[in-house]
């Protein structure tokens, strides 16, 4: 049963990674940049929800909605102010700027909310933990809802990019920015929308993650951000199902390493797996191979 318990925790952690990885992968797909500030948007989302619930006495679910809205706007503003002016310049400039934005967000949080770790109140406080098989199988509401949230987000996002006009336009811009403009697609709008969706999802990931792992600090988003980036690369950066699979596999590897090998080595094992996958398949598990037809 402990195996099954670990699997559930792994899926739950992996779901958080998957939701964050979506933001990385979609933004990479459309603007070919690695948004290293993405992890810190998670932290901002968690703080917004935390402060509204614990200091303003707001309902936790309402605070989640406001956190999503805040991060959505934050994502659009970051893209507009920091990344758009650099579009068309070298990718190194954008990368360095993204790291700068990441530090900016962490330090702004430090200034605004202080360095003290806060104890985050779970979004699922009122829900009961499920015990099954004579108590040997435990499913926390956090795990259950995180896994469910991930499934719903994946379905919704897949439908969005495959069925709606805006979603198809996003894929068109991802594939060929110039050709998309020749269709009359406003590339700036498409990129803003991608940042908005990715950052909104980051807020959800932040609240879900802090519900399960309740310590909240200005650096809270950094490590999961890097892990989710790893997940996105693992699954094949630019691919939405890749982010999902990469996230889940990474979460499961991490929890199993922790449970059966060593909790100190867990992160090292995770990154070692990434290196192995990239050595065997440089484009990641579901990465698109680029083939051009004459």
């Amino acid at each position: 049963m402990s195996l099954l318990n670990s699997l559930i925790s792994g899926l739950s952690l992996g779901s958080v990674y998957a939701i964050i990885a979506l933001g990385y992968t979609m933004v990479y797909g459309i603007s070919k940049m690695l948004n290293f500030a993405h992890g810190d948007v998670i932290m901002v989302g968690a703080y917004v929800s935390f402060l509204l619930t614990n200091h303003a006495g707001m309902n936790a679910w309402v605070s989640l909605l406001i956190a999503i809205a805040t991060c959505t706007v934050l994502g659009i503003v970051i893209e507009r102010l920091a990344y758009r002016p650099l579009r068309g310049t070298g990718s190194l400039a954008v990368l360095i700027t993204a790291i700068g934005v990441s530090y900016f967000l962490q330090n702004a949080a430090l200034l605004l909310w202080g360095a003290d770790p806060r104890m985050f109140t779970s979004l699922f406080k009122g829900f009961k933990t499920i015990h099954a098989a004579n108590g040997s199988l435990t499913i926390t509401p956090e795990s259950l809802f995180t896994i469910l949230a991930n499934i719903i987000i994946m379905i919704a996002l897949t439908l969005f990019v495959s069925k709606t006009k805006a979603g198809k336009a996003m894929r068109a811009v991802s594939e060929d920015n110039g050709a998309a403009q020749l269709m009359g697609i406003n590339v700036n709008q498409s990129i803003s929308l991608t940042f908005a969706i990715g950052s909104g999802l980051a807020a959800i990931a932040g609240v879900l993650m802090c519900s399960a792992y309740p310590v909240l600090m200005p650096t809270t988003g950094a490590m999961p951000g890097i892990k989710a980036f790893t997940a996105a690369v693992f699954g094949g950066i630019g691919s939405i199902p890749g982010a999902m699979i990469g996230g889940l596999i990474l979460g499961i590897i991490e929890i199993f390493s922790r449970a059966y090998i060593s909790s100190e080595l867990a992160d090292a094992i995770v990154f070692a797996c990434l290196i192995i996958v990239l050595l065997i398949k440089p484009t990641g598990l579901l990465g698109k191979k680029i083939n051009e037809k004459v």
Binding site: K165, A169, E175, G178, A179, A180, L182
Partner: peptide
């Protein structure tokens, strides 16, 4: 003005019909 670029530059990952829909974006 409609510009059919050199090298076709169709959207390889989209279906034929979705490509045509993109052509009708405006």
């Amino acid at each position: 003005i409609s510009h059919v670029p050199e090298g076709r530059r169709i959207f390889q990952g989209l279906t034929v019909e979705d490509n045509l829909q993109m052509g009708a974006f405006v």
